[in-house]
Design a protein around this nucleic acid. Structure first.
Length: 266
DNA sequence: AGTGCGACCCGAACGC
DNA sequence: TGCGTTCGGGTCGCAC
């Protein structure tokens, strides 16, 4: 998401919106007519990110966009044919479009007045980013030790750690040597220190690589996604652990597929 | 309050 | 080859 933000802001700032075309209305959670009408004549001035949310600053509003798993943004010439998975099209006066593409139609957008940002479901309850200096072992220990949930589930809790998804959760647990089903109450301060250290390292590295693209056919604005070459466990079921050559296993925890090395993660 | 689970959505992968 | 079925993934809402 950070990669998308960085690339997108180079491409769309300071362009006036001529028209907004919404082809699948359920993407828009706020009032649909206001969404289509209020953005016309305005230009994006900045793009922020909060966890997995992209927050576009535009006039008196924030446009909050959550891509879920498959949402992507493309810049295309307005004359280009509309792909069947393009659901929201922002038409700029210079003849280009910003197009939101989502094969699963899972992503969501909210247009709110700036002062109402905290009213957007999900945006307001973000925890601390792995790359934020406020992320400490004491903070995590305090959150984890009270919970009987498995560590995999806790790492995915956006109210604790902001922005960590399924891929990176598996990678952080592997790098920290923690068995994914280990319970929060059983975690130690030393393990929390590892999660802080490895979480920061992995996310910084992933951002440097332009993120992770799991499916080879996916490509979108700002996602060249070279980090998948660095993945140690995720999507590597039945392959050898890159550290100890044990066969990587897969299990489901909290409804999420989880990859791990039974030798490296105790 | 904490926890578990179905719903949302549909292309891809799988099974026959 | 072609059909029907299952899966996945982030988050919310509901039930316990």
């Amino acid at each position: 998401m950070e990669t998308v933000r960085q690339t997108l802001r180079k491409r769309i700032l300071k362009r006036k919106i001529k028209n907004v075309n919404v082809l699948y209305e359920r993407i828009i959670e706020s009032d649909i007519n206001e969404f289509k009408k209020n953005l016309i004549g305005l230009e994006f001035t900045e793009i922020y990110r909060r966890g997995k949310w992209l927050i576009f600053e535009i006039g008196p509003y924030y446009l909050c966009s959550h891509l879920r798993m498959e949402g992507k943004y493309f810049i295309k010439d307005h004359n280009e044919e509309i792909n069947k998975h393009e659901h929201v099209i922002f038409e700029f006066e210079d003849g280009t479009d910003l197009r939101y593409h989502d094969t699963r139609k899972f992503g969501r957008m909210n247009l709110v007045l700036k002062e109402d940002l905290e009213s957007v479901e999900g945006v307001h309850k973000q925890g601390i980013e792995p790359i934020d200096n406020k992320m400490t072992k004491e903070y995590l220990y305090d959150k984890f030790k009270k919970s009987k949930l498995p560590m995999k589930t806790l790492l995915l809790d956006q109210t604790i750690i902001s922005g960590l998804g399924n891929i990176y959760a598996d990678e952080v647990l592997f790098a920290s040597g923690i068995y994914p089903q280990k319970l929060g109450i059983d975690i130690t301060m030393d393990e929390c220190a590892k999660i802080v250290k490895e979480g920061k390292r992995i996310i910084e590295e992933a951002i440097k690589c332009g993120g992770t693209t799991i499916r080879s056919y996916t490509s979108s604005l700002g996602v060249t996604g070279r980090f998948q070459q660095n993945l140690m466990v995720h999507k590597r079921e039945n392959e050898e652990c890159k550290k100890c050559h044990t066969i990587i296993k897969k299990m489901v925890i909290g409804g999420r597929s989880t990859y791990y090395c039974s030798n490296c993660q105790k």
